[in-house]
Simulated assay, not measured.
Amino acid sequence: MTEVDTPRKATTQRLLESAAMLSYDPALEVDWETPLDTSYHGMSPEWSTLYGTPYWAEMTEDQRKELTRQEAASVASTGIWFEMILQQMVLRDFYAKDPTDPAFQWALTEIADECRHSIMFARGAEKLRAPAYRPRRHVVELGRAFKAIATGEAAYAAILVAEEVLDVMQRDSMRDERVVPFVRTINNIHVVEESRHMKFAREETKQRLMGAGRARREANAIAVAITSYFIVTSMINRDVYQHAGLDSERAIREAKANEHHKSMLRSSCAGLMEFLDSCGLLTTASLRFYRRASLI
């Protein structure tokens, strides 16, 4: 066993032990039976794309709550889309590798978690009375290509971006008593289990980059930044405003210019950007995409 393999084995063994001690079955943990209480928000209102805008000030409290419920459902639907990409990349990465390796067993554990999460998100969106929000067609096709060709640090760093942005948002909502209880439970489950996934993604990113030259780091930095841009800009589907009974054109215009929401995204990604920088994946070229996505 190499010096690199020894700490990696120890890390994945700890993750397996943690999963054995603290994992959830959403089918049993989430209250799926109680009817939706529309007196609650779907996410912390401060995370709404319209929070702090003139339109938000004009909206009734019921409209604000409906909007946050639709936005929460959109985030969940985008999460399902990316979790399916994640599962395929991890399966491809560990195809035909040593099944006795704790990293192999952890990869399967993570995939099992993601399957449960996707079902949980789907049922949650349905209970929020939302349609099946999906990324735009060109983003779906780009995702299809990315999951087929992304390898090594590009795959794991992209996984990390998707998980870290969602993590901060969900941590706020799971503690917020204004948010409907079943969504708080969903967020809590996801935060607990994704913390292990993020640990693995960080370790894999660092390991895969060992010995990587400048050209490889530059190329992967761009790939991760572009992927991050499409993930973040796909989280809130434009149709949420129509389904919330709002003027879609005005809502989209004000959401695009909403400095409060951009600030929330930037603050949520501060630690992530530090990590990417430490790995040599925050380059001059990649910064353009992170700025466009309001992540830096």
Rank of each mutant, 00 (worst) to 15 (best):
E194D: 14
E194V: 11
E194R: 04
E194Y: 01
S195C: 09
S195I: 04
S195Y: 01
S195L: 13
R196T: 07
R196F: 07
R196K: 08
H197G: 14
H197C: 13
M198N: 13
M198C: 15
M198P: 11
K199E: 09
K199Q: 15
K199F: 10
F200Q: 13
F200H: 12
F200M: 11
F200V: 13
F200Y: 12
A201G: 05
A201W: 02
A201M: 12
R202F: 05
R202P: 12
R202V: 14
E203G: 11
E203T: 14
E203P: 13
E203K: 14
E203S: 15
E204V: 04
E204A: 10
E204T: 10
E204W: 06
E204K: 14
E204Q: 07
E204D: 05
E204C: 11
E204H: 09
T205G: 08
T205C: 09
T205F: 07
T205A: 11
K206Y: 08
K206Q: 12
Q207E: 15
Q207S: 15
Q207K: 13
Q207P: 06
R208M: 09
R208G: 04
R208S: 15
R208D: 06
R208Y: 09
L209I: 03
L209H: 07
L209G: 10
L209A: 09
L209T: 06
M210W: 08
M210Q: 15
G211K: 05
G211M: 06
G211F: 01
G211A: 04
A212L: 00
A212P: 02
A212I: 01
A212Q: 02
A212T: 05
G213R: 01
G213D: 03
G213W: 01
G213Q: 04
G213E: 00
G213L: 00
G213C: 02
R214P: 00
R214L: 04
R214C: 00
R214T: 08
A215W: 00
A215V: 01
R216L: 04
R216Q: 09
R216C: 00
R216D: 03
R216N: 01
R217A: 00
E218I: 04
E218F: 07
E218V: 03
A219D: 01
A219K: 01
A219F: 03
A219S: 05
A219Q: 03
N220M: 06
N220S: 07
A221L: 04
A221T: 02
A221R: 06
A221C: 08
A221D: 05
A221G: 15
A221W: 02
I222H: 09
I222E: 08
A223R: 02
V224D: 03
V224G: 01
V224F: 03
V224S: 00
V224Y: 06
A225D: 14
A225F: 11
A225W: 11
A225K: 15
A225H: 10
A225M: 15
I226S: 07
T227E: 11
T227D: 13
T227G: 07
T227R: 04
T227Y: 04
T227W: 08
S228M: 05
S228E: 06
S228A: 12
S228W: 02
